[in-house]
């Protein structure tokens, strides 16, 4: 059950406050961790997509 003391938020919160809703900024770190990503990519089975079959959805 929600905290009964918690007041509903205003109808249109301001995303501009607290660093939200701003223009795209530089990534949070100067150099993304490419080593970890490379490891992930090397683990991908090259034939995975060939075996991937789905039913048409909406």
């Amino acid at each position: 059950m929600p905290d009964p003391n918690q007041k509903p938020r205003p109808a249109i919160p301001n995303p501009g406050g607290g660093g939200g809703g701003s223009e795209p900024h530089e990534p949070q770190v100067e150099r993304p961790n490419t080593d970890d990503l490379l490891k992930r990519m090397k683990k991908v089975d090259p034939d995975q997509a060939k075996r991937y079959r789905q039913r048409t959805g909406e």
Partner: peptide, 13 residues
Amino acid sequence: GLLDGGAMTSPFP
């Protein structure tokens, strides 16, 4: 991996 590595930005924290 991109998100955790800091390569993607977000409009909100």
